[in-house]
Every structure is written in C-alpha cells, then in structure tokens.
Design a protein around this nucleic acid. Sequence first.
DNA 1: TCCGTACGCTTAACCGGAAAAGTTGGGAGT
DNA 2: ACTCCCAACTTTTCCGGTTAAGCGTACGGA
Lengths: 339, 339
Amino acid sequence: MKRPTIADVARRAGVSKGAVSYALNGQPGVSETTRQRILAIAAEIGFNPSRAARSLSGASADAVGLALCRPARTLGIEPFFMELISGVEAELSARSYALTLQMVADPEAEVAVYRRWWGERRVDGVLVCDLRTDDRRVPVLEELCLPAVVIGGPGGTGGLASVWSDDAAALVETVEYLVALGHRRIARVGGLPDLLHTQIRTEAFVEACARLGVVDAATVLSDYTGEEGARATRRLLSSAGRPTAVIYDNDVMAIAGLAVAQEMGLAVPGDLSIVAWDDSPLCQLVHPPLTALGRDIPAYGAHAARQLLAVIGGSPADSVRDETAHLTPRGSTAPPRPA
Amino acid sequence: MKRPTIADVARRAGVSKGAVSYALNGQPGVSETTRQRILAIAAEIGFNPSRAARSLSGASADAVGLALCRPARTLGIEPFFMELISGVEAELSARSYALTLQMVADPEAEVAVYRRWWGERRVDGVLVCDLRTDDRRVPVLEELCLPAVVIGGPGGTGGLASVWSDDAAALVETVEYLVALGHRRIARVGGLPDLLHTQIRTEAFVEACARLGVVDAATVLSDYTGEEGARATRRLLSSAGRPTAVIYDNDVMAIAGLAVAQEMGLAVPGDLSIVAWDDSPLCQLVHPPLTALGRDIPAYGAHAARQLLAVIGGSPADSVRDETAHLTPRGSTAPPRPA
DNA sequence: TCCGTACGCTTAACCGGAAAAGTTGGGAGT
DNA sequence: ACTCCCAACTTTTCCGGTTAAGCGTACGGA
C-alpha cells in the first residue's frame, strides 16, 4: 500500500500542496469551506504528514531520547526504570511526542549517542538518568545546546534543568525513625558508588547518625542486584558489632537481605530491622512486609517529561524538586531486642 | 551550537555536496585521497547526516517501534518487558537502529499508533506484543504492509512473521512433574484472559490434567498483579477440595500466592507446592525459593529484533520457535503431605 | 471611476541529504 | 595526432513537507 503524500490530498481536493498545508496546520490562507473539504479528504485517505519532510523544513522531530546505562540484568529486575518510563510516556504521548530509547554500555557511549542524536536531529531533547559526580555528559549536552532534563541531583547538573527528590531528607527521616525505635547500630547497603545520589545518601546517613548518636554507622556499597545485596548483608551480619537495623538502597537488595537474615536464623524484625528504598509492590509481598521509602515514580517521570517539553519550548532551565520519599512502616521494623 | 550539514563538510573540503555524500557512503566516485580527507573533516567537525533528510530521499527511518498496551503498574512490576526491551535494544543498537517506545491505553489506540507511524514513516517496522485471539492489529499491519514481528503465538499471526515459545510444552512438563511428585489436585492462576498465550496455556493445562488423571484442575484468571494473585490464591485455598499445588502465570502472582499461603498457615511446600512462570531473580529471593519456569527473555527479545530486521530487509515472513521455558525445581515444590 | 486591500489561492524556494546525469581532464589505444 | 574512455567531480533533480512571495478577484471607500 502506497503512503499518501500531501500531493495526493492536493490532487483529490483540486488545490495546491500549499493550500493543503495551510488547511492541515490551521494557518490562515484558505477559506473555511476549503479547509473542511481538505480535512475530510485527508482523513479519508489516511494521510499523515511525513515526519522526515516536516522536520527537514525546520520543524522539530517530536521525539525525546532516553539513554540508559545499566546492565540488562539490573534493568530487568528493578521496577524503577520501567515505572519511570511509563510516567514519561504518559506525558509524552499526550502531546504526541515519541520516546526513543537506547541502552548503552557506559557513559562514554552515552555521550556518543547524544552527539549522534543531536547531529541527526533525531530528538528534540533528552532525559538524563543516573547522574554521577563530575558527570561528563553534562558539559557535552551544554556544548551541544541539546535541551535536557537531568533526573537527579541536587547539584552537579551545571546549567541543565533538573528534577530531583530530596533523598537526604528521606534518609534523615528514616534514621530518626530507627533511632526513635531504639536502634544504635545501623548499617546501610548502598548502590553504585559513582552515582551522585549514592553519595548524597551516604553523606546524609553519616551526618544523621553522628548527630543522633548512632554508635556504628557503616555503609557498604553494592550494585543493586540481589546477589550483591545478599553478600553485603552476610558480611554485615557476620561482623562483630552486628547492626540491629539495615537500610537498603533499593527493594531488590532489601528482599535479598531479608532472605539472608532468615537463612542465618535472625528474626526480622526481632533481631534485625530492615528498611527498603523504593517501595514497589514486592515489598508487600514478602514476609514480613518491608518498611519502605516510597514515592510515585511514574509521577516523577511525568514531571521530568513535562519539564523537558518546557525546556524544548524555550523555558529557562530550572531545577525543580519533586516529592520527597516518605516512610511507610510495615512489619520489618521494630525496636531492637534488648541485648 | 550550529549543527554541521553536508554543505559545511563540502565547503571545508573544497568539494561539492555530492562528493561528500559519495565519500561518506562508501560509494565509488571519489578518489581514495579525497575520501580520506572528507572523512577526516567530517569526523573533526562532528558531522552526522540528518535522519530527516536522509530518510526523505528514500532511505529508511532506521528505527523500529514497540507499542505496549498494559497498565503502568503492571509494566513496572513485571521484569518481563524490561528484559525483553533490553534484549531488543542490544540487537538494534548493534546495527544502530533506534527503538521508539509508546505506551497505549488499548488495542484500538495501538492500531492508531501503527497507522500514524506508518504514515509518518517514523519506523521501518514494529514488534507486536501480547497477541490476542482474532487480534485486530494483525489485519491492519498486513494492510499497511508495515514490516512486523509478532512476539507470541503460535497461530493467530496471519501472514506476519512471529517468534514464539512453546508454552504448551512447558506447561505439560510442569504438570507431569507435579503429578510425578504425587499431586492430584492442581490449580492454576492464569493471566489476562484475552491474551492468546493465556488460552494456549489453559488448553494445555486442561488437556494434560485430563490425560494424567488430575482430579481437580481449576484455572482462575487474573491480571498479573500481586493483589489479584493474592485474591485468587485466597479463593483457591479456601475452597473445599483445596489444591495441593498451584501454577502461577507469572512470578509476581506466585510470590503473592506464597505470602497468602504462609498467612493462612499453610506450609510451602508441605501443604502447598508453588510453581512460577517467568524465572526472575525474585524467585530466588523469597523463602522458600520458587520452583520456576524460566527462559532467557533478553535473548527472546534479541531474537525477535533480529527477525524484524530481516523482514525489513526483505526476508519472507516466517514463524520461528524460540527456546522453550524449562523447569528449575527449587524449594517450593515437594510431594503433597499424605491426607 | 479608480485605487487600495483583504482574501484565497498558486508558485517557488528551501530544508539536507542521495543519486542520476552531466562535465571535465588525462591517459591509453590506434 | 586524434579519438575514446574512464576516473573524479560537479550539477541537478528529487524526496515531501513549510512558508514567503506573487497574483487574480471582489469589495469597499473616496
């Protein structure tokens, strides 16, 4: 089946290409009668203007890009990205923008992808995830003047717009809660060390623990996978001054940690309290259900998408704060058993 | 920063646009010396040919589309799609194809998306998930002659190419395994009833149970969410002739079912054996770890992507079988406790 | 009556590449 | 010495839209 072009519509309507273009784009230059006739014909033969031709003559690509740099196994297991993407998509498809997705091996490759997208005019802007310290992607995007919204922060985003959530505040709230329960030896299993939010959380953790008189406040860094979470937990629980509470940087590691505790004969929450970051339905499916730091991830993605569309539309790049994760206490946290 | 065009390269090289085009595309028509000089200049100024211009003059869009029609919460929680996407992506990015992702509300909207993509020449082909019975998308894609690969089947794919996995065989293997353990009352918590693979599995289940003398072989349909899985499990375990084994159509429902069984005071696997379809790492993180029907989902996606690229390249549309899911017995299955 | 002008449309240029067709200059063949 | 051919480019056209500019026609005001 041949795709109809604007010329086909013009021929059937007995007018010129220009008239059809004006009619379809709501521009003045055609009478209302003619416009309706043209619209009817276009609808009848199923005409859609070619994106290529349209964007060639100056219009935008009507697409935004998202490059993800995480190993496939991490992506599959973590609900975070899929939820984020569905939120982004909800916002984009409402304005008939497309989302172009690309998995990359490392930040180097990601920068290359951005350069290519920019050169090809394939996207009007990009969403940047997994912000790192001194992130090399930031200066490149600034240099290219490619509209971008960083999902993460605060800080480290240069002149780029960003949407961020106050992880430090959420972590402080969690430590305060655990201290209030009576915990004095709290550990944390963190995510990938290069990620900025890991560092933000670590700093907040150290600061809060110091301020609140937590004796032992170790952070063990991991990679978000269940295996690594389990290994880190085993190490923590085997140590001399074993913690009475552990905060995990994602739910997968928390669930793995729970399994390890049970396998080592420790009662949760009697001997060990567990808090998970990211409150996916998984947290409620295990026994005991996990106390978790949750927030609306699709809304976060939608927020970022909305801001990106604004930046593409010419708005100044500003940094906006999204909802802070809130603690939902469930069965995995309780006062520590007296020694 | 202004994007370099082919004219910029031509000017700096002191040749015409045509020469640059020949040089960059490896066509004869320029000397090797000139070609190298042009390539060097192009690399130096970071030239990437505009996708729009290129695809306008007959070339392909170098992108494939994937429209997903599932509620956001299902997408987030199920590792399946993200793993599939990462597999698809791995294959596509190796050939510098882009993946255009779109979430849609219903099959109607999905068909509209296909028509638009086709008209806009935004994609060269599409991957179709969640095949239904008498799927309306199939005839539309055939009418449009839009290259497509259906992920699912067998059957119901009309003249479209497809990649499928033998779910019936996997289910039969599972039932045989449970019967061999001594189970005679086996239930199944299925997925969305409209999906073709749900029906294929149900038929295979009924047939296998009848053949193997399973007394009670109920299938309760659900929607892949933990809540619904839990509800279905509660109903099954409260019934008179309570099953001694349950097969779940995905891992999330299986984990929810496990929690329900434990909450109702039933020992797993003593009182109830559980088998999960889709073997994500989650299955190994719960206690007891779940016996699961697993297969390599990223490879499945890669396989589908490879076939789509072949169809786009002009290969005939054929139907190829991917790996069959294999059963990995773990702690959640055992012989039923004698009554 | 004549001119200005607003309307409704057509024409043509342009976007940035690909590729067909046209144009050189130099070397081989006779 | 003259033709022929081919390599190496240049020029031109085309893809399918958008949009500035042009061009009749009708209508209103002086």
